[in-house]
Each structure stands twice: as C-alpha cells, then as structure tokens.
Simulated scan of single mutants.
Amino acid sequence: MADITDIKAILYTEKTLGLGEGNVAVIQTAPSMTKNSLKAILREYFGITPLKINSLRMDGKVKRFRGRVGARNDFKKFYIKLPDGVSLENIGA
C-alpha cells in the first residue's frame, strides 16, 4: 500500500503551468504508486476528490559519468484533473 511519502514532487514546468489553467496538476511519485492509492491519499490528507487521473510511467535515462554507465531513477507521473476552484498550491495554507 502506497503512502504519502511515495509522492516525490509537484512538477512546475512550462508545460505543467499551462495545464494548471485547466485545473490539471502534475505529480511525480514512486513507480509503485497506483491511481487508486493516489486517489485515497488525496482524499485522506488533502480533502480533494479528483475528477480524473491519468498516469505515465517514466523509465530512468541511461547516462554516462566519467566513462561509467549509470541510470536515473524510474518514476511515475500523474496528471490529476481537479474540481473547479481547487488547486494544490492553496492546500495547507
């Protein structure tokens, strides 16, 4: 069962800020997170019932550092459609 510590970050990029105008928030999580567990976390900790959740699994990029091969960590991105008037920025304020 996933918990709130599996949420790594709320993503703020040029693309996600544009999506924010349509009440869509983008969250980066651990790869083990599911839509149902994220929905339960949003309800329990933030009091939000999302309208829709889309997920995207991202594999870590293979990179070289000083001639050695390594890889970035895998993660999941969730696109969360929020009800009108609700945003993740004003939660907890």
Rank of each mutant, 00 (worst) to 15 (best):
K8V: 09
I4V: 15
V26E: 01
N23Q: 02
V62F: 01
R57D: 09
G20L: 06
N23H: 06
L82F: 05
G22E: 07
I7Y: 00
A2T: 11
G70W: 15
L51V: 15
K39A: 13
G60P: 11
L51K: 15
K15T: 14
M58H: 09
P83R: 01
E44T: 14
I53S: 02
K52E: 13
L17A: 06
T16S: 09
K52W: 07
L51R: 13
N73I: 10
D6N: 12
G22M: 14
L19P: 13
N73T: 12
L56W: 06
A2G: 06
A40R: 14
N54H: 10
L82W: 03
T5W: 02
G85L: 04
L11D: 00
G18P: 01
L88S: 02
L56E: 14
G47H: 06
N90H: 11
K81C: 03
P31L: 04
F46M: 11
I27N: 03
E89Q: 10
G18Q: 04
L19C: 08
I27L: 14
L11F: 00
A25W: 04
N90K: 05
L56V: 11
E89T: 12
N73Q: 13
I4M: 06
S32W: 01
L11W: 00
Q28V: 08
N90I: 06
P83A: 02
A30G: 03
R57M: 05
E21P: 02
K35L: 04
G18Y: 01
G92L: 12
I27E: 00
S87G: 10
G18L: 08
P31Y: 05
P31I: 08
R43N: 11
K61C: 08
D59T: 13
S87Q: 07
N54A: 10
F78L: 09
K77M: 08
S37K: 00
I7P: 03
S55L: 12
K61M: 11
T29L: 02
A25N: 00
L17T: 13
R64Y: 15
K8D: 05
D74I: 09
K61W: 08
L51W: 02
G47F: 07
I48N: 07
A2P: 14
E14M: 05
M33L: 04
T34M: 04
L38Q: 09
P31K: 11
T16A: 03
I7H: 03
E44I: 11
I4N: 07
F78P: 06
T29E: 03
A93Y: 10
N36C: 00
D74M: 04
Y45P: 03
I4P: 05
A40T: 14
Y12N: 12
E14A: 04
K77R: 15
S87P: 08
R64C: 13
L11V: 12
A2E: 06
N90S: 14
K61G: 03
K8R: 13
Y79L: 06
N90W: 05
P83F: 04
T49W: 03
I10V: 12
L42Y: 07
G18W: 01
